[in-house]
């Protein structure tokens, strides 16, 4: 009985690892693609050097393939990358190659690293590292390097919409370059200079808590054109 059980575990284990990166990635993409549209309430908390902002709330609308809209009463700061671009990048398997990497544990979940490299030139994304939960087929962590936005690391948590691959919380870690506004524009001419100016890029985090998902209920295109 013990031998049988061990064999079963080994079979399951190898079953997972025998998956190629392409297969695993296609399962992740398939899960993402089950979502035709969604709206969600987002609570955004930004901790970015040189920006002071209180936590704010917004409603995010998404519709396949890449329609995306943020509606909020106040000002909401979001990362430029990380919502739809990775989905559209992964969706076309002809446009990239993937390599399977090591296993690691992220948020107490066993993951497999998949490194995705675009085929040819002309892509904004130059490298994508995805840590994929190989049992639920969802991305637990991603590190996307693009020409326009640098490197953005995102950690995902999942709640009741895990079956759609939709996260309940996303934590973006971004590089913020040195920000310096001319005094003439800022007009705070009497402000003293920072005694220890730091010219290096700094890390900032944006935490987005997502709740009240409405999935595949249909969203009018006019929402995105407003």
């Amino acid at each position: 009985m013990k031998t049988l059980l061990t064999l079963l575990i080994l079979t399951l284990h190898f079953g997972v690892f025998c998956q190629t990166s392409t297969e695993l990635l296609s399962k992740v993409v398939s899960k993402i693609n089950t979502v035709k549209d969604y709206s969600v309430t987002a609570k955004v908390s930004a901790n970015i050097p040189m920006i002071k902002i209180l936590p704010s709330q917004a409603t995010i609308y998404f519709k396949q393939k890449n329609k995306f809209k943020v509606v909020s009463k106040g000002i909401v700061i979001l990362p430029k990358q990380g919502f739809t671009d990775i989905n559209s990048f992964l969706s076309n398997s002809n446009k990239h190659q993937s390599l399977l990497g090591d296993t690691s544990i992220i948020n107490s979940v066993k993951t497999l690293l998949i490194t995705v490299i675009p085929n040819g030139e002309g892509n904004d994304i130059v490298l994508a590292k995805l840590w994929v939960d190989y049992t639920r087929f969802v991305i637990m962590k991603s590190q996307i390097t693009s020409i326009s936005n640098g490197t953005i690391t995102t950690t995902y948590n999942y709640g009741d919409k895990v079956s759609f691959g939709l996260p309940s919380k996303m934590i973006f870690e971004i590089d913020v370059k040195k920000f310096k506004l001319p005094k003439s524009v800022a007009a705070d001419i009497n402000k003293k200079k920072n005694p220890t100016p730091d010219d290096k890029a700094k890390k900032g985090t944006i935490t987005i808590s997502l709740s009240e998902y409405v999935v595949n209920q249909g969203i009018n295109d006019s929402v995105f054109s407003k």
Binding site: I48, L78, K80, V176, K178
Partner: peptide, 28 residues
């Protein structure tokens, strides 16, 4: 022009140009 330093990585969503901002720019 002013938020350009951040706009490479961040997007400012919502009603950025509003009466409060215009009043502030006028005063400035």
């Amino acid at each position: 022009f002013v938020t350009a330093s951040f706009e490479q990585t961040l997007s400012f969503n919502g009603k950025v140009i509003n009466g409060n901002l215009i009043a502030f720019i006028i005063l400035q």
